[in-house]
Write a protein that binds this DNA or RNA. Structure first.
Lengths: 355, 355
DNA sequence: CTGTTAGCGCCTTCAC
DNA sequence: GTGAAGGCGCTAACAG
């Protein structure tokens, strides 16, 4: 109910309470010098009228809104959704509100431009600071703090949260090589992102460490989407000398790999082992369960939010980058090759996770 | 880069371009009467300075922001995420922007209150209208249009989008009964919501239609969460006269049912058949695949967004409720009971869906 | 065509 | 302790 009423303003409250606008403002902001009885009276009117001060007007006057903005590349992107969950939890605990801004498809040509638009739209307007997830833009200008989750590789030097991608990818390679695999395909991520670059480095590190020559055919350029992961895997699978394992730079790509492998009439893990990266919720529900790297995405969101809040409150150093730990989650998508099934296990013993 | 600069205002642009503030404003809003060369000149300065008008100030003056708000109960709620995706698509196609607002946990005691706060916070401030998903509040006051997705059963008479829940639930019952099940457990949804009430009605309709007596033990009060669905299923499973099938009011509850059944050492569908409702993405990935009702959630979001936009533009009637179609999606979580495996199939022939 | 003048709703001096 | 006045960044009348 209650449609059609025009919004009530601070003036309505003042008039009804029989005081001046500034007195109401003082009550709203819990200023000290208001007579207790006046305070009460105004509070009652506020409640009765259901008044809420306008975010627009408020943020225009005082540089504090207690709202932080989250800019996501795409709602279809599970990684971003997980970050959002983490941010949400942290934010509510700190008494902040939280606004999500998201554009259309991730591969839209103007993504970078839209991001910049959003940044200046939210910033210096409505939010006290911004969290940017997997940005496409490499430069932006803003007056309030920004924290980036999974930054661009040539990104601006602003605080960032990122996983220990290279080490984690190396760990995956050690695991696969320990299982006896030597022809290992790799589906890269969006190479503009630092995470994608680092994971590729980890892949190469793994080969080098094991003395395996790189084969360019085995590296397919993906972009973290299921669709392109699917196309990459199709190419890998139809190779004359087919790989025995495929390492996908993220779980969505791995889902694409699953689809391609299935369509090729092959079976996971019997014919091809698959490893992903991210440990998104779906990874636990695939058949077979996807072995992947947990990078605790929601924790990344939480850390980003906390760092942003510290920045807003002037308690934090500038361009600090937080490295987040990772963990190999072994499910059922990999198998040991017969020839070397009993070789040494990887050094960082992975935990077998049930669910 | 570019931190620390204070936000540039329309005045900076005006000064730099050597024109008045209002001229810049005219350029910004594409007013007709601006000299082409002036327009160019101003545009160049705008771009060079990287200026974006302040949402706060803009929305304070002109009652149009081209931003619509989405209020979700909880980011952990897959239904809401799906709605968000649909809204997002519709919104960007219509040239609107889109802001998500979400509070903490759904069962927090003050959810209704927070919703109301958000409504008046967003409304008459920053957005031209609001989409409210599965509201906890039953009354609110706002000056701008609101569309509700999956409304409260005692909700205010505002435009709503809701599935044909009762008929869909009846259809599920016909399906299960057609498979020979007669003891069918039901895990309800959040009974404050109309959808939950209607699905329960459909369940009872199905029993009545088949001449099966209601057994109160078989109806467990859930709330659309996995956790409570789990608890409900535990009770159903440990019943002396255990049901042969469980119909969960949504997929999340069904996931809880899966867990409880598994923990009880039983197997789906051999020992117990399970049906869900919603067809969230996870439903396709469970083992075994969950038979459920697709209610095309993203379409609901799309429809809600389009109706809201029509409302904002004054082209729509007031309290219209849109009924959305549903479809039974048969996967692998139900089996026919031996005694009546060859009975008649349900009237509305369900489509067997592969993925 | 463009500049000037009012405010939008609110907060912050500065008087009283 | 409280009210009046000014201005945040912007748009919408009016003048010219």
């Amino acid at each position: 109910m209650g449609r059609g009423k025009k919004a009530i303003t601070i003036r309505d409250v003042a008039r009804t309470a029989g005081v001046s606008v500034s007195t109401v403002s003082r009550v709203l902001n819990d200023k000290d010098d208001v007579a207790p009885e006046t305070y009460e009276k105004v509070q009652i009117v506020i409640r009765r009228l259901g008044y809420t001060s306008s975010l627009a007007a408020r943020s225009m006057r005082s540089r504090r809104t207690n709202v932080i903005g989250l800019i996501m590349p795409d709602v279809e992107y599970p990684f971003a959704i997980e970050v959002m969950k983490g941010v949400n939890h942290a934010i509510t605990q700190h008494g902040y509100e939280f606004i999500v801004y998201t554009g259309g498809e991730i591969r839209n040509e103007s993504t970078a431009e839209r991001e910049r638009r959003y940044i200046s739209l939210l910033n210096s307007s409505i939010t006290d600071g911004i969290i940017l997830v997997t940005p496409a833009t490499t430069h932006f200008s803003t007056a309030s703090p920004v924290v980036v989750v999974d930054p661009n590789s040539q990104g601006p030097p602003c605080p960032a949260v990122i996983a220990t991608n290279r080490a984690a990818a190396l760990n995956v390679m050690e695991y696969l090589i320990g299982l006896g695999h030597r022809r290992i395909g790799f589906v890269t991520g969006r190479l503009g992102l630092e995470s994608a670059v680092r994971r590729l480095e980890g892949y190469k590190d793994g080969l080098r460490q094991a003395g395996i020559a790189q084969d360019p055919d085995l590296i397919q350029i993906g972009d973290y989407t299921e669709e392109v992961g699917y196309a990459c895997a199709q190419r890998l699978v139809s190779l004359a000398n087919r790989p025995t394992a495929i390492f996908a730079a993220n779980d969505q790509s791995a889902l694409g790999v699953y689809r391609a492998v299935e369509e090729a009439g092959l079976e996971i893990p019997k014919d091809i082992s698959v490893v992903g990266f991210d440990n998104i919720p779906e990874a636990a529900h695939t058949k077979p369960g996807l072995t992947t790297v947990d990078q605790f995405i929601d924790q990344m969101g939480r850390v980003a939010a906390e760092q942003l809040i510290a920045l807003i409150q002037g308690e934090a150093q500038e361009s600090e980058t937080r490295k987040m730990p990772t963990q190999l989650v072994v499910r059922d998508s990999c198998r040991a090759l017969a020839t070397s099934a009993f070789e040494a296990q990887p050094s960082a013993a992975p935990r077998k996770v049930a669910k």
